[in-house]
Nucleic acid binder design. Sequence first.
DNA 1: GCCAACGTTGGC
DNA 2: GCCAACGTTGGC
Length: 150
Amino acid sequence: MNYWLMKTEPGEFSIDDLKRIKEEPWTGVRNYQARNYMRDTMAVGDAVLIYHSSCEVPGVYGMAKVSHLAEPDAAQFDPKSKYYDAKARREAPRWWGVRVRFVKKLAVPVPLSVLKKDKKLQKMFLFTNGRLSVGAVTKAEYERILALAR
DNA sequence: GCCAACGTTGGC
DNA sequence: GCCAACGTTGGC
């Protein structure tokens, strides 16, 4: 069992959207490291923290789980999509995404400002590689963040 | 393979 | 809207 944190812009797709539709193919990731995590490492049942970025109060808002292994991201083949990639070919897809299933919305979200101040979270990828949109967290980090949500 | 230019992310 | 950090691209 692995633990992950996945960022999303709530203006595009939020924890409330996930709650409503239950399961979502995670499309639009255009970073190789994030893609590799999804394509090569994620397994069904892995725990996911849902993080809202580029919004009024960035932070962790919910819990989800990996519900399906990575599939080719359909948006890469759609010329009308902002995630279209002219260099991607169907027989050799460049971008992949897992499916994510809603688990719960945190009663009390954990803002970035709180994560930043927490001594146990200083080594999180959020701070060592802040631009990564999908990253691994340790079990200790995962549990610490949920403890902060209480 | 180096590295400058450029684009994107994302907090503030 | 600004800007720092960082990833990608492409010329050489």
